[in-house]
Design a protein around this nucleic acid. Sequence first.
DNA 1: CTGTTAGCGCATTCAC
DNA 2: GTGAATGCGCTAACAG
Lengths: 365, 365
Amino acid sequence: MATQKRVRIKDIAKLAGVSAGTVDRIVHNRGNVSKKSREAVEKVLKEVNYRPNIHMSSISLKKKYDILFVSPKFVEGEYWGSIYTGVLRALDEFENINVSCKKLTYNQYDVFNCKEVYSKALKLEYDAVIIGPIFQKETQVFCSQLTEKGIPYVFVDSDVDQTSPIAYFSANHYISGYLMCKLINSIMKSGKKDIGIMQAMRVGNESANSTILRKSGFQDYLVENKLQSKIHKIPFSATEPEKNEGMFDEFFEENKDIGGIVVLNSRGNVIANYLNKKKIDNIKLVCVDLTNENIKSLKNGIIDFLIGQKPERQGYLAMKFLLEHLIFKMPVMVANILPLDILTKETIDLYREFNDLVYLDQYND
Amino acid sequence: MATQKRVRIKDIAKLAGVSAGTVDRIVHNRGNVSKKSREAVEKVLKEVNYRPNIHMSSISLKKKYDILFVSPKFVEGEYWGSIYTGVLRALDEFENINVSCKKLTYNQYDVFNCKEVYSKALKLEYDAVIIGPIFQKETQVFCSQLTEKGIPYVFVDSDVDQTSPIAYFSANHYISGYLMCKLINSIMKSGKKDIGIMQAMRVGNESANSTILRKSGFQDYLVENKLQSKIHKIPFSATEPEKNEGMFDEFFEENKDIGGIVVLNSRGNVIANYLNKKKIDNIKLVCVDLTNENIKSLKNGIIDFLIGQKPERQGYLAMKFLLEHLIFKMPVMVANILPLDILTKETIDLYREFNDLVYLDQYND
DNA sequence: CTGTTAGCGCATTCAC
DNA sequence: GTGAATGCGCTAACAG
């Protein structure tokens, strides 16, 4: 009753006046089909909305698929780790498909290392790539070389201009920054009016695309709402954390009117730990990404709102769509923008309990 | 690499020294098995963590399952409609399983009608029931009669005391109320301090369990945080909406210090539309449930935060778990508490785009 | 080029 | 009470 009976390959064969084998050859673009048969089958396919049953396919599929996963280095519980967990979950769900997934990671704070890893990646053999991009230009070069070799790729976390991925899976970073600005303003109580923004220092002086977009959304909210808050950049080092406390001490010495801080990258815990240590509790804090460290700070009340980007789902969908594309050459939607999760101390536990899946795998290259 | 090769029924058969047919008889509790075989197989099952492949099972399954869905009346886009949509989505995903789902609905504001529908339900034939409960006592009676007949049931939206469902799928309504109280307080600006709570009038004067729990969470937040806000109940009628405007006029005439309103049931749009019509824009509003009407008010800025309870997912999981239970008699987790979504004007569109699935079915009984 | 056939994991039926 | 045989939708190898 709910949905009409799904049409099978056998039905299509009958309607087109050919055998099941021929239909299968066409669906999988496997050649050796006469023009006449192809046209007859494609005509039927257009009429009947054939949705191949991937579970049935995978059981009898013999081909092996090699996928490469390239992203910033990570450990479990970090943003990129969750993306990878999603990738593994997709592999688990489609366990009958014979696919191997090789992982290659680079230092996201060092453009030179990223370049190195990309060229290392080009020497390997695989059917498709999942890319977690940080550096725009380097990724563009990498992608154009993949295109030359005829290898399809998808992005997770961000899209990259001037590339042609099969699909990408990301949050809307602009809206994310816009939202974070709204949230910090709506919870800052009258009195101290200034807002701080954390800024990571990188080798190569390039900021991640996602952070740039968030900053732009942040600014636009201020302008659209004619807010007069003074904005202060707070520098910090992701690679040499021991330097941070000194820098923060200096900053807060000079800026006494900070009423709220927004962290537009996933390292919110850096400032949260500082505020906690110094027992500063009159500064509101809005951060992004459900890293283990950020979650800890959300739970103990230092972070007020934490924005989640569903990294696990991004990875899951990327692998799932990639497999569907490889197997069925199905047209997939290119832009896949996932919703933003707004989390508080009250909701984080339920969120994790429900989304967490235990993976005991080692996260090794 | 990701996960160890899944063990198949054939593997178990070999390990236990019996044939695949025998293993299947045991897995499906179908009898006609010697004690010796049963013990051998069960021993192996314990050791190897057999996860039957439901997709492979369903293809060769011949049995037909009849499911009954009982809930408050709804139209598309309302809370209960989304739950039903999730049920249909599960049926679509497991299309190979031969299952029919009959729908029966009652007036959630009229306990007598609910009773009638429950007794009508008891006269039908089915293998299991999905219940959306509103009235506690009546549901308890219904459930005890189901238990007598040996018919399993699951709840969506709420659990009900003194019943033994296979499982239930709901939000934590207590936390939901607690959270709504925190949100309204964090965004109310100094000045007007009082908070209003909307209260639906019902035939039978029984409030839904979910609303009672939310109220309790709401109160506890106030107490724990030693907040002095004065709380005002604002009565409204869900069944005779034309009476509301007069009641609200009267209420706001008498209470000038309302700075925020919380609606602990899904009818937030009732007060939102009123505030919009009267151009009152200095009252913050926090509501629950993503009904089409509530979403409209969120988008035009009348509602500040809207709490979502993932009704679609509740319905989906209820049907999915029920089928798994019926087919495999698998032990399912009884309490399934879904996370709460916090939505704002900025995030609602992404949320809907991503979660919406088009179902062209008619919502008829 | 194309139809036929075997086999994937599983539930079920049918001889033994 | 049990193993062997069949068929589900699909892919892949094979024989024409």
